[in-house]
Design a protein around this nucleic acid. Structure first.
Length: 189
DNA sequence: AGACGGATTGCCT
DNA sequence: GGCAATCCGTCTA
């Protein structure tokens, strides 16, 4: 069982495994507190119509970063999962800032800790993640973006419908660490 | 070749 | 709570 095997699974499974892990970019790092799963057989997924120029990284080996621009303004970061050619990924929606917090404040032009990484676009701005990172491997220990697995400290998980989509809106594929002050939005109860 | 619209955010009322 | 910002890949013709 290698670390990469943890990503070679269905997106909802991988998504839940990613909670509590650390995403590290340069001197900045944060604990993943919110994710969403996007599968290949999923009308909400960018991969629903097969591989294209934009979504190509979703079809690469598990652990590959899929970074895309949204609304021509922000970046969103995903990690591909499942076998090569499958086309599934997990969207990183929120982090708890851990390292490089002053740099995050400067990049975000915000001082409130909860305003730094509490959303998919915010965390990319805080960690300076952009199109240049698309296709990188988060399991490459020499890479620009690295994923450090969860230390195993237990937490309560909450589940809910995904945010901001217009298709397949009822799949409960949003997952979060209960009670975290760094969630992008509250989970419905 | 041209139109569409989005896995968001922040400012305004 | 409403809505503009702002780009380009994808779709339709």
């Amino acid at each position: 069982m290698t670390l990469r095997d943890l990503f070679d699974d269905a997106a909802p499974q991988v998504a839940q495994r990613l909670l509590g892990s650390t995403l590290s970019v340069g001197s900045c790092a944060g604990r993943i507190v919110e994710v969403e799963a996007y599968e290949s057989d999923d009308e909400a997924s960018h991969s629903r119509r097969g591989r294209t120029v934009r979504n190509g990284s979703m079809f690469e080996q598990p652990g590959t970063l899929y970074v895309y621009r949204i609304y021509g303004v922000h970046w969103c970061a995903n990690i591909a999962c499942g076998p090569v050619g499958h086309g599934a990924a997990v969207l990183i929606r929120a982090l708890e800032p851990l390292d490089g917090i002053e740099q995050m404040r400067a990049r975000r032009n915000r001082t409130d800790l909860r305003a730094l990484c509490s959303g998919p676009g915010k965390l990319c701005q805080a960690l300076a993640i952009g199109g240049a990172h698309d296709g990188l491997d988060v399991l490459d220990v020499e890479g620009a973006i690295r994923l450090v697995p969860s230390d195993g400290v237990p937490f309560e998980m909450v589940t809910g419908p995904r945010i901001g989509i217009t298709r397949d809106v009822d799949r409960p594929w949003r997952f979060g660490i209960a009670g975290s002050p760094h969630l992008s939005k509250p989970f419905p109860r």
